[in-house]
């Protein structure tokens, strides 16, 4: 099962390495990871996407909680939540496809953030399905470069952890 786990941690050097070391040392996999400061600059927010059966996820959340620098762990599997990820894709369409590509980007509410003589760079934000559909479509136009942020997630208002 795929889980999105958010971890509030002390914003200190070495913390990322403690978290990633916990995963690698126990043979758990990290599919994506994003880190950023919170409103409180002494605290960072990490969002980790990982897979495992219930026992593995239980171990992961317990082991995360056990780390001294971890303040809070939320497994969004149990919570009504919204999730977003952003991708940047530099696409090089044939001349005749350029107009269609722009229309497609619009359908995905993508923005063209850079354009050259042969390429467009498109920014798209969305949940997992939307991003996957967008990437699939873009492939046929020839993706030159590709970058993604990894997921971030947040609980919906009033929906507490089950």
């Amino acid at each position: 099962m795929r889980h999105i786990i958010s971890v509030l941690v002390e914003n200190k050097f070495g913390v990322l390495s403690r978290i990633s070391g916990l995963f690698s040392g126990r043979g758990f996999n990290i599919e994506s990871l994003s880190v950023g400061e919170t409103i409180d600059p002494t605290v960072s927010f990490m969002t980790i996407v990982t897979t495992g059966d219930d026992q593995i996820i239980e171990q992961i959340t317990k082991q995360l909680n056990k780390l001294i620098d971890v303040i809070k762990v939320i497994d969004f599997m149990d919570v009504e939540h919204v999730e977003r990820e952003m991708v940047l894709a530099k696409v090089a369409p044939k001349k005749e496809d350029r107009a269609e590509l722009l229309r497609l980007a619009e359908i995905f509410r993508g923005r063209i953030i850079d354009s050259g003589s042969t390429t467009y760079t498109i920014e798209v934000t969305g949940d997992e399905k939307k991003i996957a559909a967008f990437v699939e479509l873009m492939k046929s136009y020839g993706i030159k470069e590709f970058a993604r942020t990894g997921k971030v997630a947040m609980a919906r208002e009033g929906k507490k952890q089950r």
Partner: peptide, 8 residues
């Protein structure tokens, strides 16, 4: 005392 020991 260590929750990670339980059900490991």
């Amino acid at each position: 005392i260590d929750p990670t020991s339980i059900r490991k």
